[in-house]
Design a protein around this nucleic acid. Structure first.
Lengths: 153, 153
DNA sequence: ACTTTATTCAACTATTTCAGTCAACAAAAA
DNA sequence: TTTTTGTTGACTGAAATAGTTGAATAAAGT
């Protein structure tokens, strides 16, 4: 399960992607609209900014915005920043490999053999999904929801 | 990342699968061979026994064994028992569904739309891999390792 | 210059989970 | 009945999670 921090962060990124090129967005507005504790959100956005995913401006007219276009930010990047490596075990991580302590022969570890496949599939999906893709998915789901209602009427 | 508890538990299951039909295995032997803290391992095995995955016998000649054949125990089952649901968010879990608190419209949640795919792929792999499958994978990997050495010689 | 509006940053706290230990207890075989 | 072995619940220290508090800093408008 992903942490609340990660979930809040992803919600914020989607929110900012939807309003890309509308100028800076206030933390307060974001926190209110997505019901995220404001002070907690400050920490999260600051992290994402230091990682280069977001940019900010202080003072009147300031706020947060994406650091690059929604097509250039993937779920995989964002999740790794907030949640850590995607891999279920460190010895199959591509971005943050680490040897499993006390795991004799790495090539013949049964857990590793299975978890490698899991990691690769997760990476395929999450690194292949940008914020722009998610906006399209959401719009599609909303349309399907509307059609269902129209059909009922 | 999976917890040590889960990793130890999976190692123990693979160990017991390898020695299936060799009679009960002592916790002490398992702990020694896989370098798992014995007392911690007791907790883990007890959990798996209460869930029906393992069986045990007390007294001399006792020990732990799989509760059913290795072809009938999947990685998915074991991981769910020790680590909890596979799903990254509760609202896409098939075995332990829960509504995301304060997540307005479930059908149009961007996070949910992506995480559904992740969960389904994880479930496909982990529920489709039995302990028997893992033994075969390990043997295959060992053979490949041996051939590599032969080739070098 | 001064105030308002915002982000930034460090530090602090409460709750929960993780990882592991301890010691008493129960059962079965020798 | 004694020894061997598993069973169980309670306990502990460390780390992660989920925040909160309060002050510093920067930019814009007056």
């Amino acid at each position: 399960m992903i942490s609340k921090k990660t979930k809040y962060g992803l919600k914020a990124l989607i929110y900012l992607a939807r309003r890309y090129e509308q100028g800076p967005i206030l933390i307060a507005d974001l926190a209110r609209d997505e019901s995220i504790p404001k002070k907690f959100l400050e920490n999260i956005l600051l992290n994402l900014k230091n990682a280069g995913v977001l940019q900010s401006r202080k003072g009147r007219g300031g706020g947060y915005a994406l650091g690059r276009p929604p097509e250039k930010i993937t779920f995989g990047q964002a999740i790794r920043l907030m949640e850590g490596p995607l891999a279920p075990v460190p010895c199959v991580s591509e971005m943050a490999y680490a040897r499993c302590t006390e795991c004799g022969s790495e090539l013949t570890c049964g857990i590793r053999l299975v978890m490698k496949d899991v990691r690769d599939e997760m990476a395929r999906i999450l690194d292949g999904t940008t914020l722009a893709d998610v906006l399209v998915k959401i719009d599609g789901a909303e349309d399907r929801g509307r059609n269902l209602i129209d059909f009922c009427i």
